[in-house]
Design a protein around this nucleic acid. Structure first.
Length: 301
DNA sequence: ACCCAGGCGGGCG
DNA sequence: CGCCCGCATGGG
């Protein structure tokens, strides 16, 4: 039975790491890794990583606990945890940097241990193209449909299918507009088609320099459907560059309310004040503000 | 019936 | 430039 092999697989390939200042539920609920499937009652999450399927579990307290991951490749699991959940971030230091006022202080206290995640550039690009003018629940649904239709089967060592991979750009090149519409992509179908073509034939997302904020932004915005905000999301969550400060409707409203007495401001002004307050850590500030401003929003599951 | 959702591209003044 | 509009779709 497949369940037997899954148990065995987990026993054989489980990797454990100690982790401080970590909250898995907040990290997943903040809806940045849109391919993640969370099971909060067991404090676990599972998601595809390349042609592997990872299941992560957090035990212990937020202050000090343990992360365990199981997948086919033990070394991959170890690298995955560190990289994907940014375990090398010194959260106490980062909190010191972004805790500039009572708003950030409250958000940090509320979501203590929430991490940014670092995801694959291509997956991040597709997910955030889909995110535009959309809500999180539907974004997740669309991403899931795309994976089911265009992803490859992920199989364990016994040939049992355990999930679907995230489709590569080459997997999506053959997609027709009709098919993409059936996945619920709507008017974004043409963007996905262009992105698949452009990222296969014109640019190589994996070769871009994560540290070159402006260079990244310029290149990413060559893709149809990628503007300022989506580019910043990709730079932050696909390249791990904390200089990015994506300004969506939630952040815009929150920033105007908190720092401009509720007055309407241009994106440029909001970005400037973010830079003054949080400098090269503003990506983390954004994440805490974003999640806080979405609190009580039950639109996503 | 309306409104909104992690915006973007295109067109116009 | 800055502003404004349409855009697919599903859930409040």
């Amino acid at each position: 039975m497949s369940s037997y092999y899954l148990v065995k697989r987990e026993e054989l390939n489980a990797v454990r790491m100690e982790v401080d200042t970590f909250n898995l539920a907040h990290t997943v609920e903040s809806a940045q890794p849109l391919t993640f499937i969370g099971d909060y009652t067991n404090d676990t999450v599972r998601y595809p990583a390349g042609m592997d399927y990872i299941k992560v579990r957090h035990t212990g307290t937020v202050e000090h606990g343990e992360l365990s991951a199981s997948c086919f490749d033990r070394d991959l699991a170890k690298r995955e945890l560190r990289r994907r959940f940014r375990l090398d971030d010194n959260m106490q230091y980062i909190y010191k940097k972004i805790n500039t006022d009572r708003h950030l202080d409250a958000s940090i206290k509320r979501y203590m241990g929430m991490r940014l995640t670092l995801n694959e550039p291509w997956e991040t690009t597709v997910c955030f193209i889909i995110s535009q003018f959309n809500n999180v629940k539907r974004i997740r649904s669309i991403v899931k449909d795309l994976m089911n239709r265009y992803g490859s089967d992920i199989v364990d060592e016994n040939g049992n299918t355990v999930g679907k991979s995230f489709p590569k750009s080459t997997d999506l090149i053959g997609a027709t507009k009709k098919e993409l519409m059936e996945c619920g992509t709507g008017f974004r179908a043409k963007y996905i088609m262009h992105a698949a073509d452009y990222c296969t034939n014109n640019i190589s997302l994996d070769k871009l320099n994560p540290h070159d904020y402006y260079g990244l932004k310029e290149t990413l915005m060559e893709i149809d459907g990628v503007g300022e905000k989506v580019a910043d999301c990709i730079i932050l969550m696909g390249y791990g560059n904390l200089n990015a400060f994506p300004i969506d409707v939630h952040i815009k409203r929150a920033m105007e309310k908190l720092y401009f007495e509720g007055k309407k401001k241009r994106l440029k002004d909001i970005n400037e004040i973010a830079d003054r307050m949080w400098g090269s850590y503003k990506g983390y500030a954004q994440q805490y503000l974003f999640h806080n401003s979405r609190a009580g929003d039950l639109n996503d599951a």
